[in-house]
């Protein structure tokens, strides 16, 4: 496959890491992936290694939720205020070597024009870094286990059983994380997705559910032994589980 020239990657340092595992999340359903990733960043303190910029990243999404992009709705470009400085919307790549070599990918939802291209570039970068496996953190809104899983192969699903993980969601997996998960499979990166059970909020689909995010973090911790403390998330947010 060819990679488009329209994405730009800014490298902050040359990574020295051997066969890292990737953890991917983005602001999806009830922000579960994003919250879980924030916790990882807080507690593992990975270093920002690269940033991916795209003209298809709106600062304002016309679609609700942001990951449900439509061909006719490009959104509006603009800058984001983060802390004291203004910056452009971007995908961030963090890296840590302890307790295990890990790339943490914080996604951003492109509009319809850019979703595949961005996901391809992300997967390519992970491939160049030697990533062979990724864990994708997200949410699902059905009755079932606290955390359900999906994978790029039946073998990996079998392996996931050891951690009490079973498939429990059937249907579309939209936006950045879904496409990185799927395109990774084409590039030979195996993937296991952890879906935290949540109650969808139709009025505010990305309304954070920290408890569901904590459940996802606990499963990831059990698999990768990252020694994370999810209790901070448990005490967060006014939205309880239903």
């Amino acid at each position: 496959m060819t990679v488009s020239p329209s994405c730009k990657v800014r490298f902050l340092f040359k990574p020295k890491v051997s066969a890292p595992t990737a953890v991917v999340g983005s602001p999806g359903l009830r922000s579960i992936g994003k919250l879980a990733l924030n916790l990882l960043r807080e507690q593992l303190q990975p270093k920002l290694w690269a940033e991916l910029y795209s003209p298809s990243f709106p600062a304002v999404h016309q679609t609700r939720p942001s990951y449900a992009s439509q061909p006719s709705l490009p959104g509006w470009a603009g800058g984001l205020l983060e802390g004291k400085a203004l910056s452009l919307p971007r995908v961030k790549f963090f890296l840590t070597s302890a307790p295990t070599p890990l790339v943490v990918v914080e996604g951003y939802h492109a509009n319809f024009q850019g979703q595949y291209e961005v996901a391809e570039r992300v997967v390519e970068l992970l491939g160049e870094l030697g990533v062979k496996r990724m864990y994708v953190l997200a949410g699902y809104g059905l009755e079932g286990a606290e955390v359900a899983c999906a994978a790029t192969s039946l073998n990996l699903l079998e392996e996931a059983k050891k951690f009490g993980l079973e498939p429990g969601y059937e249907g579309p997996f939209m936006g950045f994380s879904g496409l990185v998960f799927g395109l990774g499979m084409l590039k030979g990166i195996e993937g296991l997705c952890l879906f935290g059970k949540t109650q969808p909020d139709p009025a505010e689909p990305e309304n954070p559910d920290p408890q569901a995010a904590a459940a996802v973090v606990r499963k990831l911790d059990a698999i990768l032994n990252l020694r994370l403390d999810s209790s901070r998330l448990m005490g967060e947010g006014k939205e309880g589980r239903n």
């Binding site: 192969s153 249907g171 997996f173 939209m174 879904g178």
Partner: peptide
């Protein structure tokens, strides 16, 4: 459409 499909058996399909 910018999504993948999760099949009933838990595997992913582009």
């Amino acid at each position: 459409p910018p999504h993948v499909l999760i099949r009933k058996d838990g595997t992913v399909e582009l």
